[in-house]
Design a protein around this nucleic acid. Sequence first.
DNA 1: CGTAGTATTGAAACGGATCAATATCTGTGG
DNA 2: CCACAGATATTGATCCGTTTCAATACTACG
Lengths: 247, 247
Amino acid sequence: MIDTTKRSGGGAAALTRRGPSLRAVPFVARGSEAVELLSEAHRQELARHATVRVLAARTIVYRAGAPADSVFIVGEGALKSYRDLPSGRRRIALFLFARDLFGLAEAGRYINTVQTITPVRAYQLDVEALTQLFQRDSALELQFLCKTFHVLREAQHHNIIVGRHDAVGRLAMLLRLLQKQNAATRGQADVAIPMTKSDIANYLGLSLEAVVRASRRLSREGIVEFVGRHQARIVDRHRFEALVTNL
Amino acid sequence: MIDTTKRSGGGAAALTRRGPSLRAVPFVARGSEAVELLSEAHRQELARHATVRVLAARTIVYRAGAPADSVFIVGEGALKSYRDLPSGRRRIALFLFARDLFGLAEAGRYINTVQTITPVRAYQLDVEALTQLFQRDSALELQFLCKTFHVLREAQHHNIIVGRHDAVGRLAMLLRLLQKQNAATRGQADVAIPMTKSDIANYLGLSLEAVVRASRRLSREGIVEFVGRHQARIVDRHRFEALVTNL
DNA sequence: CGTAGTATTGAAACGGATCAATATCTGTGG
DNA sequence: CCACAGATATTGATCCGTTTCAATACTACG
């Protein structure tokens, strides 16, 4: 398990220059849409207190039940946040991407296990230090509050996905999510799929076979084209959107 | 639609003496378990800025998409937070009870519609005033942050419920939720069910018929006894817990 | 280059959705 | 206080999609 940990103060890489950032929709309405919530000043303030961690793929960041002393901000890469149920089943609660926040605790313990999917760069923040920071900087605290709302909305969206009764519809909604995820980097039709089909099954609340069959159906009907295991391309956007919206 | 609104400053009722309170599990570990998070001082501070609203059953507090200018704290009663989907289906995201927080917005708009189930007393707080309050009182803001975590965890728990493939298991988990809800007021075995079976179906992601059959099965097997439509009693606690835990 | 995790495909069984018909409750106005 | 209407609940029969089981293929990584 590779885990390169260093203090982010030592101006080592380009990463450090930029520092942590969050993504969320503001609490109240402002002219534009979703924005960079952290000001440059806040970013630097966080960077001073953060530890940069570089993690290999499939590394467990922390396990459910472990003492929660840090929160994390994803710099780059993809992770999954999950719980293993008594039956041996696994439920993935959330996929995490750049600028996402994780490490939310209950009574000082992490509730989910978090594991990297791809190689990841993350910023680790000490909880104690952070709450002290909040006392001095109310605006920064408000950003975290907003971000937590954002995560909450994602959880509710996940509820709606899992509530659907058709496997193809659920898969389409996940692909939509992934497509929006890196709409900036890639084209509107290209979808990068970092996780395995098992992960997808665990996220959608389906069996692996159901996910495979749903994928096959999407490609057979000419709606989505799969290129290898970790790449897809939306061919018929119209029918794709119809599937997604057909709640 | 009865909607008695009054400024909570005018020391009218016993309600005002106590004022709003929140329920959540602390961010970090403290000796005991879930606690009253708001100090007496905080409660009074919120009460000064809050409007008390008394709402009849089945009143819509706000609709999805409406401009979000207030957040609310439930004083007493039960509510549902839901979204109507394009298909006409309805997904209930959350049931709300005493000391719960609602009115979380995205980009200045409410995302869900909130409607009372029973008569409700709620405290309404202006968002602008609240954010200003946060600037002066960082600790109060932290309470709201913790409470939002609490709601997030409930959403994730909901995900786990809906992820189950058996109807009886899902129903059992909801009954468990309701039972814990008023474990203080009522006995360990008694469960008050304020909502209708349709509401339950919309929450569990099942058809109404499936909920009815699951109820029937629980009572036929002597696990839960239903007294009228809004009351249940857990007869065989052991098998009940087995059902709930059988994830 | 082998091995363990990952994916694919088929056949069978189960469970919930849906449709339909009827029953019961709740609140309202006469 | 009762009758009525609309919402809520119950029960049965059928259909459909997903789960499960099983057997085989792939592929990434050490």
